[in-house]
Design a binder for these strands. Structure first.
Length: 585
RNA sequence: GGGGUCGUAGUUCAGCUGGUUAGAACGCCGGCCUGUCACGCCGGAGGUCGCGAGUUCGAAUCUCGUCGACCCCGCCA
């Protein structure tokens, strides 16, 4: 149909007769001469429709409108002196049309199809195909394709085999809420869409696949965020006969390959490795953004010696006082300080103590409670310099971390403390194996129930499970978790101990995971793996604010597809066949 | 489940402490135009101010409710 795309003609093509098909991007009608910019995925080419060259083609040019699909035949010609368009890759040439045909007409689009003209979020989703046609989203989808393509090549070269696992699988009721699919052939029973192929990839290890991967869709029925969609894609990896270092180094190679081939950037490997405990202590979070400082300081000891009741009481109750220096914030007004305090309270603090560090000394309503050398100690611990603001949270240790960790990020964003072009990777290791779920009154796995404990901690299952460390690792990029995995349990005994610690009885364990437990008895190799969030990774690579911007057809925050209007009701017959009754009471 | 921002022309938005006929830009329609590329010039159409109730002599504007989009907390092994 076409001889060239709308992005490839150069002065070297001058003289050739070509046929282009594309969308009418812009039309500039001079009455006599008409210019049409023809657009496709590859670019834009200017067509000149001149009555002296072809009367009927020129006639047609008056009839076409924006987004008509136009087929043009004509000669590639050099643009006249002074009319070359530097902004266009094809700007040295234009087509003198001698034949024109409307391949497809178009209604006036609801918004202008132009990369500089951004429609609102609702518009983008409702007319997604037009939003993709507009350009920037198409570019991001191309980048996404490039990433999966690099990943597939890399893993293929390293001996990995992509194996597909079931989308209709078993609900385990652990972790996130499942999307359920009723079974017609087994009325009253349900499949679940996979939250991840976790158990299948472990079975593939038992099967001897040795190195598995899959670029795979996963489903979680939880509330949405800008980085969370109900269906998302994982780069899922599992390997046999490996330890943490083997898995990490394969991943580092893969990430470096992606950055090299997609962004032309060299990434230094191996990545920094930091323990969970250190990350919490220094950054207050388990996914630290290490592009800037503002590290937290434990000033409990100094604070305990003071006469400040808030600090003393918190410590007496077994809590801690943690502090941080906000650079340049000594100039904050009363209102700004109140806002900052309000923000801290929003993050869970009871309040926020602050001390301004100025050239003239310390300024704060609470200086009177401290000896000068104590405040000097605060200054030393936080690294505050004149012009900075020291902020303090006195509370349970966990609250102090959460509040200052969140405040640190919010302040850094406001103060522009990091460079948008920087990419800082860090592995977080030695996660706790369990955490205590106050609501369920039992221990739950921090990672998942198949994560192996650190060997020397195995004796603590019965006594102090909360002290046990997991052989898990998360890859964090600029404060975002882009991947996480672990070395798995590969023996039945440890797996049973694990279930016991999670208060999952033997019967329940057999009912839910019996197939895995049995498999572990047939020579399961030591194995481990990881999964990366493809959507998040591509969002970071393309500078997208939300993963919606790297997904062709995403859902809204209420998990609705406004394009297809899914989910929707179904007719009574469908429900009957499935043995289902609606009850919305 | 909770907190916040937003909802006005096809689109993106402005519209003040309530007050004549609700504006702009782009787009759209008609006319003119042979070197434009954000073409230009002239003219025109286009509004249930998300929806519902209330306050008021009077509501796009204030109040309440509701629906929707987005951001955050909870939730997401």
């Amino acid at each position: 149909m076409r001889t060239h795309t709308c992005g490839e003609l150069r002065s070297s093509h001058i003289g050739q007769t070509v046929t282009l098909v594309g969308w009418v991007h812009k039309r500039r009608d001079h009455g006599g001469l008409v210019f049409v910019d023809l657009r496709d995925r590859y670019g834009v080419t200017q067509v000149a429709l001149n009555p002296q060259i072809d009367e009927s083609a020129h006639e047609l040019a008056h009839k076409v409108r924006a987004e008509f699909v136009l087929k043009i035949r004509g000669k590639v010609s050099a643009r006249p002196e002074g009319t070359v368009n530097q902004k266009l890759a094809t700007g040295e040439v234009e087509i003198y049309a001698d034949e024109a045909e409307i391949a497809s007409a178009s209604k006036t689009p609801p918004f202008v199809i132009d990369e500089d003209d951004t429609p609102g979020e609702a518009m983008k989703l409702k007319h997604r195909y037009l939003e993709i046609r507009r350009g920037p989203l198409m570019k991001r989808l191309e980048t996404r394709h490039k990433v999966s393509s690099v990943v597939r090549n890399y893993l293929d070269e390293h001996g990995f085999v992509e194996v597909e696992t079931p989308m209709l699988t078993k609900s385990t009721h652990e972790g996130a809420r499942d999307y359920l699919v009723p079974s017609r052939t087994n009325p009253g029973s349900f499949f679940a869409l996979p939250q991840s192929p976790q158990l299948f990839k472990q079975l593939l290890m038992v099967a001897g696949m040795d190195r598995y991967y899959q670029v795979v869709r996963c489903f979680r029925d939880e509330d949405l965020r800008s980085d969370r969609q109900p269906e998302f894609t994982q780069i899922d990896i599992e390997m046999s006969f490996v330890d943490e270092n083997n898995v990490r180094s394969i991943c580092e190679g893969m990430i470096a390959d992606i950055f090299d081939k997609v962004k032309g950037m060299k990434i230094n490997t191996p990545f920094t490795v930091m323990t969970f405990a250190e990350s919490m202590r220094r950054y207050g979070v388990d996914r630290p953004d290490t592009r800037f400082g503002m590290e937290l300081a434990d000033v409990s000891e100094l604070a305990g010696q003071s006469d400040f009741k808030v600090f003393k009481d918190a410590i007496k109750k077994g809590g801690a006082v943690r502090a941080m220096a906000a650079p340049g914030c000594a100039a904050y007004s009363r209102k700004e300080l109140d806002d900052l305090t309000g923000e801290a309270i929003g993050f869970g603090a009871k309040g926020l103590a602050w001390i301004k560090v100025t050239d003239e000394g310390f300024v704060s309503p609470i200086t009177k409670f401290f000896k000068p050398e104590t405040i000097d100690g605060f200054k030393q611990a936080t690294g505050a310099k004149p012009g900075d603001l020291m902020v303090f949270v006195a509370d349970k240790e966990r609250i102090g971390f959460e509040v200052l960790g969140a405040l640190r990020l919010s302040l850094a964003k406001r103060l522009n403390l990091f460079d948008g072009s920087e990419y800082n990777f860090v592995w977080i290791v030695d996660f706790p194996l369990f955490e205590y779920d106050e609501e369920a009154k039992r221990h739950v796995a921090l990672h998942h129930p198949f994560t192996a404990p650190v060997e020397e901690d195995k004796g603590l299952f019965e006594t102090e499970p909360l002290k046990m460390r997991a052989r898990a690792y998360d890859l964090v990029l600029n404060g975002m978790e882009i991947g996480g995995g672990s070395i798995r349990i590969h023996d039945r005994q440890t797996q049973s101990a694990m279930f016991k610690a999670l208060s999952i009885g033997p019967d329940e364990a057999m009912e839910k995971f019996g197939f895995l437990l049995e498999a572990l008895e047939y020579g399961a190799p030591p194995h481990g793996g990881i999964a990366f969030g493809l959507d998040r990774l591509v969002a970071i690579l393309t500078g997208a604010e939300s993963i919606r911007e790297v997904i062709a057809f995403p859902k809204t925050q209420k998990a609705v597809c406004v394009l297809t209007d899914a989910p929707s009701g179904v007719d009574a017959k469908q429900l009957r066949e499935l043995g289902l009754k609606r009850d919305l009471s």
